[in-house]
Simulated assay, not measured.
Amino acid sequence: MKQTNAPQVGTRTAPFGVLLSPTPRGARLARLLAVEWLRTRPEVPYRVAEDAAQLVAELAANAATHGRVAGRSFRLALLVVEGVLRIEVTDTRAGDLPRRRPPSLDAESGRGLLLVEALADRWGAAPGPAPQKTVWAELDLPLS
């Protein structure tokens, strides 16, 4: 039986994916594109879309800051499957997988994953394929 990427009615929405430059401008564009895609998804309520936009902004900023490799783009992917909105940001610096660390009181950064943890129902990171890593976050959608 031939498999297709066509969405199944009621369980899966056509995914969104884009490659972006690992710069502050690329991170801002990731958020803008995500907001536009989310706006067209009737199964994603406004409040969930707002949280998703914040998650995209943080994960894309992290990719542009910590996952930056000159000449290599990062990828943003959004997908709705069976009542879950999944956000994935893949960069080309597999090194350390991100993990939440307590920031020092006078630090100007280092709180992003606290925000991700607060907004997402689940999040994590996975290596590969080399030299990539993907940081993902999921938001549960309310039952209709």
Rank of each mutant, 00 (worst) to 15 (best):
A126Q: 11
R47P: 13
L105P: 07
R86A: 02
A6C: 01
P131H: 12
V80I: 05
D140I: 03
A30G: 02
V69N: 05
P142L: 09
R99P: 00
I87A: 03
D91Y: 01
L55D: 13
N62T: 11
N5G: 08
N5V: 13
P131N: 10
F16Y: 15
R28Q: 11
D96K: 01
E50K: 10
A94E: 08
E117Q: 07
E138S: 12
R68L: 06
A130N: 02
A94Y: 03
A52P: 06
P98C: 05
V56M: 14
A27K: 06
L78E: 04
A70G: 06
R111W: 12
R31P: 00
G128C: 04
L97S: 01
P103Y: 09
S104H: 05
L114H: 12
A53F: 07
R101W: 05
T40L: 09
G110K: 06
T40N: 15
L20Q: 04
V81D: 14
L59D: 15
A118Q: 14
E117I: 02
P7V: 11
V84I: 08
A52G: 13
E138H: 05
R100I: 02
R75Y: 06
A126S: 10
P142W: 11
A6E: 04
L76A: 03
T65D: 13
A125P: 08
G112D: 15
L55C: 13
R31W: 02
R72W: 09
E36K: 10
L113A: 09
S109T: 10
V56I: 11
S144H: 11
R100Y: 02
T13H: 13
A63W: 14
P7M: 07
V9F: 06
S73H: 15
T134K: 10
E138V: 10
I87V: 12
V9W: 03
L97E: 01
V135P: 00
